[in-house]
Write a protein that binds this DNA or RNA. Structure first.
Lengths: 143, 143
DNA sequence: CTAAAAATGAAAATGAGTATCAAAAGCAGG
DNA sequence: CCTGCTTTTGATACTCATTTTCATTTTTAG
């Protein structure tokens, strides 16, 4: 017998008139259970595997909601598909993207973040988010 | 009377079977005369203004060639249009992107570049290129 | 000059993402 | 647990950037 998990807090309630629905809960569950850089299509398939009735359009819509709600962040790689990654409080990682095998290595660097803050300050710019992607070949592909 | 500039070196000759054509020369001229972040559509219009017979498909194709040839770099913003910027030898700049007015401020930071090299080295990663984009509000939009 | 290879343009095709809209589901108050 | 109102959903049609196709033209090697 399958136990329906009851979400202890409603992520959507916080915002204006957002409602909590089975689909959104499903999508959020699957998204949170996923590790890094899911494309909408991937997520859609995973969600569909879990619960039949969820349309693609809803997955697209819901991911945008996640971004607005600060739960997810959009990643643009060069394959024409938007991907999403978790936004875990206070954490931010950047990416080494291997153009050989498409693998992604994450890293964090506090100094770079600080330098960004300085640069922004120097231009009177208020940072909302940032993205640092380094392209090249990983150790296995560089032969 | 208009003087046909003769390109002193053939950028395309270097690679495999690439040929030098009027269209490619036109596109390259216009691209080089353009400053930062041209979308394909923009470039197409500029090229068409200069010389009638150049199709969109060719502009798309040629820009990809420029990237392969190391003359241009793709920039992905969040408006669904791929943009291209020059790759000038040794120079690299990153971007402060204002989400308010879509303006772009460029900056360079040697320290960040060095830190990237260190990080890459630590992961046995060979850097080909990188992209750092900081999103937020510029001084005029942050009111 | 000539044949083979590569490039081009126009138009059709693709594909990610979005809009539409009728039907279904959440929600507040009784 | 009805009722009425609003939001959400799914299916599908649509948009729009980019790619492919293919017949024709241009380059280039010889």
């Amino acid at each position: 017998m399958i136990q329906e998990k009851k979400r202890t807090f409603n992520v959507f309630a916080a915002s204006k008139g957002l409602r909590s629905t089975r689909q959104r809960d499903n999508i959020l569950d699957v998204f949170l259970a996923t590790h890094q850089h899911v494309s909408v299509e991937e997520l859609y398939l995973k969600v569909k595997a879990v619960s039949q009735g969820v349309g693609q359009a809803t997955v697209y819509r819901t991911l945008k909601l996640f971004v607005e709600a600060g739960l997810a962040r959009e990643i643009l790689l060069h394959d024409g598909q938007t991907r999403y990654e978790h936004v875990l409080a206070g954490e931010h990682h950047d990416h080494l993207v291997c153009t050989g095998c498409n693998s992604i290595i994450e890293f964090e660097n506090e100094t770079i973040e600080q330098l960004q803050d300085e640069i922004a300050a120097r231009h009177g710019f208020m940072i909302r988010s940032h993205k640092l992607e380094i392209y090249g070949l990983c150790s296995r592909c560089r032969t």
